[in-house]
Design a protein around this nucleic acid. Structure first.
Lengths: 182, 182
DNA sequence: GTCTATAAATGGATAGAC
DNA sequence: GTCTATCCATTTATAGAC
């Protein structure tokens, strides 16, 4: 049922009606409202389930044998970029949450999840300036999909490997002779 | 009037009613519908104006004195990350378009804009693997803002300078001894 | 051009049969 | 637990006064 709601809202945004959702779930509006007391409740549960799914995806990618700095960041990169993960599901979550965010109660949920993420990154032991960079690159690769770009698996995979390699060799990044270009 | 529509839709999503928009614009519903024959028309014009604004922002950041490879990419990075640009306006465009995208006619517009972008990047003379990386990092920095992160100007600015520096020194990137970590 | 008033349709939510 | 039927509020869009 939440799945049906997810796919309808991703397609139609918050404009998706209880009728649409009920139809997609194969029940009637009355049947739907028996489980969720209101549309607002439905949206909130949906948002929670997606955020949980997102966090679980990261945790599932934590390598138990890995105890080096950057461990969490590597799990994040894999969760977001690894083609073997269900990409469609991940993208759905992103687009869906983008739609749901207009509800203040829901944007509070995503903001909280985001703060958890930031805290994990800060505690991950990578130099801050590398961390900013690597995380931004991983995020950006998923963001483009939102705008209708066709996913390019080989480019994504190469990016993933390089980002992970960077987390293993932070000195490659931090020791570059950065200077302003004249 | 389009401005009022933009701010209402960004706040409420497509659920924003003509009444809300009219009130925010300081006119009545009838007055609003005199200018836009339907809500659909209003949304389409709004999407067009935002996409145009986005492209104009990039073109305004093209450096006339710069004829080196990566010229377009540098303009893009500045348009997206430079704190001196009106960040609020840019963010509004992103959140707004994310809302509007559920309309198929509008997602066609953003998809087309995205293809234009990709073509420009490909023609920009940077090694493909560096280009993927730099563009993703720039995109990601704006994407996080969508999830409610507080913007960190100094981190963003440092990221911007490093990305631009990378486009000037692609060899820093391409000559790294990439290998799988064992 | 902009307003008010209203038409026509649809939305969310409730009540009660099965 | 799921359905149909119905209520009430709200929405888009139109008509016509000013």
């Amino acid at each position: 049922m939440l799945d049906a709601a997810a796919s309808e809202i991703r397609l139609q945004g918050l404009g998706a009606t209880l009728n649409d959702i009920a139809a997609a779930a194969g029940v009637s509006k009355g049947g739907l409202l028996y489980h969720f007391s209101s549309k607002e409740t439905l949206l909130l549960e949906l948002a929670h389930s997606r955020v949980d799914y997102f966090r679980a995806g990261i945790e599932a990618n934590l390598d138990p044998a890995d105890h080096s700095p950057g461990r969490f960041t590597r799990a994040y990169i894999r969760a977001v970029l690894d083609p073997s993960q269900d990409k469609a599901a991940a993208m759905n979550s992103v687009c869906l949450l983008a739609q749901l965010m207009v509800d203040p109660a829901i944007s509070a949920i995503t903001r909280e999840a985001n703060e958890w993420l930031m805290a994990e990154f800060r505690a991950d032991g990578l130099p801050d300036e590398l961390s900013v960079f690597v995380v931004a690159a991983a995020d950006g690769a998923t963001a483009t999909l939102m705008w209708g770009a066709r996913p390019d698996l080989s480019r994504t995979h190469r990016l993933e490997r390089r980002l992970i390699e960077l987390t293993w060799r932070p000195e490659w990044w931090t020791s570059l002779p950065w200077e302003e270009h004249s």
